[in-house]
Amino acid sequence: HHHHHGSGALAALHAEGPLAGLPVTRSDARVLIFNEWEERKKSDPWLRLDMSDKAIFRRYPHLR
Score class of each variant (00 low, 15 high):
21 G>Y: 04
38 E>H: 15
14 H>S: 02
6 G>I: 15
17 G>M: 02
61 P>E: 04
42 K>W: 07
32 L>Q: 05
34 F>M: 07
45 P>M: 07
21 G>M: 04
20 A>F: 11
27 S>K: 14
14 H>K: 02
49 L>R: 02
31 V>D: 05
32 L>M: 07
54 K>V: 08
42 K>D: 09
45 P>Y: 06
33 I>M: 13
55 A>W: 04
56 I>V: 10
46 W>R: 11
18 P>Q: 06
48 R>P: 13
8 G>K: 08
29 A>K: 00
4 H>Y: 09
58 R>E: 13
58 R>P: 01
15 A>L: 13
22 L>W: 04
1 H>N: 11
32 L>C: 07
24 V>K: 11
16 E>P: 04
33 I>Q: 02
15 A>E: 14
46 W>G: 12
36 E>F: 05
22 L>M: 08
22 L>T: 03
60 Y>A: 01
13 L>R: 05
43 S>P: 04
1 H>I: 13
31 V>A: 09
41 K>F: 07
51 M>D: 06
57 F>R: 04
57 F>C: 06
39 E>G: 06
50 D>I: 04
29 A>P: 00
11 A>D: 03
64 R>F: 10
20 A>M: 12
31 V>Q: 10
2 H>G: 11
28 D>Y: 03
51 M>I: 15
19 L>A: 04
12 A>P: 03
2 H>S: 09
1 H>G: 12
43 S>H: 12
60 Y>N: 00
1 H>L: 14
30 R>L: 08
6 G>M: 15
58 R>A: 13
14 H>F: 09
42 K>L: 10
14 H>G: 02
10 L>W: 06
22 L>F: 05
32 L>R: 02
46 W>F: 13
13 L>N: 03
20 A>W: 07
30 R>K: 09
49 L>I: 06
62 H>E: 01
33 I>P: 00
20 A>C: 08
18 P>N: 07
56 I>R: 00
55 A>E: 14
25 T>W: 04
24 V>R: 11
37 W>N: 01
56 I>Q: 00
38 E>V: 15
11 A>Q: 04
30 R>N: 04
33 I>H: 01
49 L>H: 02
49 L>F: 05
25 T>I: 01
19 L>F: 14
21 G>T: 03
14 H>L: 03
53 D>I: 11
56 I>G: 00
6 G>L: 15
17 G>C: 04
13 L>E: 04
16 E>Y: 11
19 L>R: 03
26 R>F: 13
24 V>E: 05
34 F>H: 06
9 A>C: 13
23 P>W: 00
42 K>G: 08
49 L>P: 05
13 L>C: 08
32 L>N: 02
15 A>C: 10
45 P>G: 07
56 I>F: 01
34 F>L: 08
37 W>I: 02
64 R>I: 13
1 H>D: 11
15 A>W: 09
54 K>R: 11
10 L>H: 14
55 A>I: 08
43 S>D: 12
31 V>H: 11
38 E>C: 14
8 G>A: 11
58 R>G: 09
6 G>W: 15
47 L>P: 05
19 L>E: 03
22 L>E: 05
24 V>F: 05
35 N>P: 00
5 H>M: 14
34 F>I: 07
39 E>P: 02
39 E>C: 09
38 E>G: 07
5 H>Q: 14
52 S>E: 02
1 H>T: 12
64 R>C: 08
7 S>T: 14
1 H>C: 15
6 G>V: 15
24 V>T: 04
42 K>A: 08
58 R>T: 13
18 P>S: 07
25 T>N: 06
53 D>R: 09
7 S>P: 13
34 F>Q: 06
28 D>H: 03
56 I>W: 01
64 R>E: 09
7 S>D: 13
1 H>M: 10
30 R>Y: 08
35 N>L: 15
13 L>D: 03
48 R>K: 14
51 M>Q: 05
41 K>Y: 08
30 R>Q: 06
38 E>P: 02
47 L>W: 12
57 F>W: 06
27 S>T: 10
35 N>E: 10
58 R>I: 10
22 L>D: 01
20 A>S: 08
36 E>P: 00
9 A>T: 15
8 G>M: 10
9 A>L: 13
13 L>M: 07
30 R>A: 08
11 A>V: 11
57 F>H: 07
11 A>S: 05
9 A>M: 12
40 R>K: 13
63 L>M: 02
6 G>F: 14
55 A>Y: 13
5 H>W: 15
49 L>Y: 06
19 L>D: 04
32 L>H: 03
56 I>K: 00
25 T>C: 08
2 H>F: 13
18 P>C: 05
14 H>M: 03
64 R>T: 08
26 R>E: 07
22 L>A: 03
15 A>H: 11
31 V>W: 12
45 P>R: 08
33 I>L: 12
24 V>N: 02
38 E>F: 15
36 E>I: 05
42 K>P: 06
52 S>Y: 01
52 S>G: 05
59 R>E: 05
48 R>S: 08
24 V>G: 01
36 E>W: 06
22 L>R: 03
36 E>Q: 06
23 P>K: 00
16 E>D: 14
44 D>T: 06
6 G>H: 13
61 P>Y: 02
26 R>T: 12
58 R>W: 09
11 A>I: 09
7 S>N: 14
17 G>S: 02
10 L>E: 14
9 A>G: 13
57 F>A: 07
20 A>K: 15
47 L>T: 13
54 K>E: 15
20 A>H: 09
11 A>P: 15
28 D>S: 05
10 L>Q: 14
2 H>W: 12
60 Y>P: 00
19 L>N: 08
34 F>C: 06
13 L>A: 04
2 H>I: 14
40 R>Q: 11
39 E>Q: 12
25 T>M: 04
49 L>N: 02
32 L>P: 00
33 I>V: 06
13 L>P: 02
3 H>Q: 09
4 H>F: 12
10 L>R: 13
42 K>V: 10
62 H>I: 00
43 S>V: 14
43 S>M: 14
63 L>R: 00
56 I>T: 02
42 K>C: 07
27 S>E: 14
40 R>T: 06
62 H>T: 01
9 A>Q: 13
62 H>Y: 11
55 A>C: 06
59 R>F: 05
48 R>T: 11
8 G>R: 10
57 F>K: 05
59 R>K: 11
12 A>L: 15
41 K>I: 13
10 L>P: 14
42 K>M: 08
7 S>M: 14
40 R>S: 10
14 H>W: 14
60 Y>Q: 00
28 D>V: 04
31 V>P: 01
2 H>C: 11
33 I>N: 00
32 L>G: 01
41 K>Q: 09
57 F>N: 09
31 V>C: 09
7 S>G: 13
19 L>W: 10
23 P>G: 00
13 L>T: 09
28 D>Q: 04
10 L>N: 12
37 W>K: 01
26 R>H: 09
22 L>C: 06
55 A>P: 02
48 R>W: 07
3 H>C: 13
18 P>H: 07
59 R>G: 01
25 T>F: 04
15 A>R: 10
51 M>P: 02
61 P>N: 02
49 L>D: 01
32 L>S: 02
30 R>P: 00
54 K>G: 09
53 D>A: 07
59 R>D: 03
22 L>S: 03
55 A>D: 03
31 V>I: 15
26 R>Y: 11
50 D>L: 04
55 A>H: 11
54 K>Q: 11
47 L>K: 06
14 H>N: 04
10 L>S: 15
18 P>D: 07
37 W>T: 01
30 R>S: 04
28 D>E: 03
40 R>D: 07
14 H>P: 03
50 D>R: 06
40 R>F: 08
1 H>R: 08
50 D>F: 03
1 H>F: 09
16 E>K: 08
45 P>L: 06
15 A>F: 08
63 L>A: 00
32 L>D: 01
62 H>S: 02
13 L>W: 02
59 R>S: 06
27 S>G: 13
64 R>Q: 10
36 E>N: 04
8 G>V: 08
26 R>Q: 07
43 S>G: 10
37 W>M: 02
64 R>P: 04
50 D>G: 02
52 S>V: 01
44 D>R: 06
15 A>M: 14
52 S>N: 03
15 A>Q: 14
51 M>K: 02
38 E>R: 15
53 D>L: 15
21 G>I: 02
44 D>F: 11
32 L>K: 03
20 A>Y: 09
55 A>T: 08
4 H>M: 12
20 A>Q: 13
13 L>I: 13
50 D>P: 02
60 Y>W: 14
27 S>I: 11
9 A>D: 12
64 R>V: 08
42 K>Q: 11
21 G>S: 05
37 W>H: 05
53 D>M: 10
4 H>G: 10
63 L>Q: 00
46 W>N: 14
54 K>F: 09
45 P>W: 05
27 S>A: 14
59 R>P: 00
6 G>N: 13
40 R>N: 12
18 P>I: 07
19 L>H: 08
